[in-house]
């Protein structure tokens, strides 16, 4: 079990991405909503194998449940159709609407869950490192890595500033207008402070030869495993099989 978990987590990021891509494409090849919905369960199974079932399920529910419910509500009531299966005063649910919603939501759920799975089993750092190896420019990787570090730092700082504002007497609760007034004093020192720091950050980066015109090396690298080519070949075979089956049908 642990062995399987490790093999999945250690797969090369682009291999994992190909799995995601395959799942996304397959829902457009296989007709109907049943297969597309089953992709959710396929992803669940993989997340279970990779030891991240709970995170996967939490995120899938948070990201997809509401939107799916709303699509059903909007489409089943308001999709133009004649086969009324339930009605109350001016509202009526039509079969056509349900079919449309099933079709649409199954694809959203399939694509959504395969991406959620991808980011549960792939460290963003690894993904960026593999993209760098594919030739992504260092300035771009810098932007991504720096973004991922800054967000949690700024969020922490926000809490600190909000507490400081509270002790200075800025109201953060109560009437809507009071709360609106608290917004700017919280945000603006945060922004002005971090933006003022960019000037010296440029000096820091220049001092560290960031703009030197040589090919950079990297201490952190991700290696391909022996399973990577196997997974890729299986994906290719599956894809070809699906296409042939679809054409023959």
């Amino acid at each position: 079990m642990d062995q399987i978990k490790k093999s999945i987590l250690h797969l090369y990021p682009t291999t994992k991405f190909l799995v995601t891509l395959f799942l996304c494409i397959s829902v457009f090849i296989v007709p109907g909503y049943l297969y597309a919905y089953s992709v959710l369960f396929i992803c669940m199974f993989f997340s279970y194998l990779a030891g991240s079932f709970k995170e996967f399920s939490d995120l899938a529910i948070k990201a997809l449940l509401l939107i799916v419910v709303f699509i059903f509500i909007l489409q089943s009531f308001f999709y133009p159709g004649t086969h009324v299966i339930w009605s109350w005063s001016i509202f009526s649910i039509k079969q056509e609407g349900i079919d449309f919603a099933l079709n649409l939501t199954s694809k959203i759920v399939a694509i959504g869950s395969s991406f959620i799975l991808f980011f549960r089993i792939t460290k963003v750092k690894d993904l960026i490192s593999s993209l760098e190896a594919l030739g992504l420019p260092p300035k771009v990787t810098y932007i991504f890595l720096s973004t991922l570090q800054i967000i949690p730092e700024m969020k922490k700082l926000t809490i600190v500033i909000m507490d400081a504002q509270k002790t200075r007497g800025v109201e953060t609760e109560g009437k809507l207008f009071t709360r609106i007034k608290a917004f700017l004093p919280t945000l603006s020192p945060l922004i002005l402070g971090s933006i003022a720091g960019t000037e010296e950050r440029v000096l820091t980066l220049e001092s560290r030869a960031f703009s030197a015109k040589v090919k950079k090396t990297s201490l952190y690298t991700v290696e391909k495993t022996k399973y990577d080519p196997i997974v890729r070949i299986i994906l290719l075979i599956l894809l070809i099989t699906l296409i042939i089956w679809r054409v023959m049908l």
């Binding site: 300035k139 810098y142 932007i143 720096s146 973004t147 570090q149 800054i150 967000i151 730092e153 700024m154 969020k155 926000t158 909000m162 953060t172 709360r179 609106i180 608290a182 917004f183 919280t186 945000l187 945060l190 922004i191 971090s194 933006i195 960019t198 000037e199 950050r201 440029v202 980066l205 220049e206 960031f210 703009s211």
Partner: peptide, 24 residues
């Protein structure tokens, strides 16, 4: 370079803005 350094901060501001909205 200085404009590039604005990007991560801009992204973080988007997140923090949403966070403060939630808190308030």
């Amino acid at each position: 370079l200085i404009a590039i350094l604005l990007i991560p901060i801009g992204v973080a501001i988007n997140f923090v803005g949403a966070q403060i909205v939630l808190l308030l």
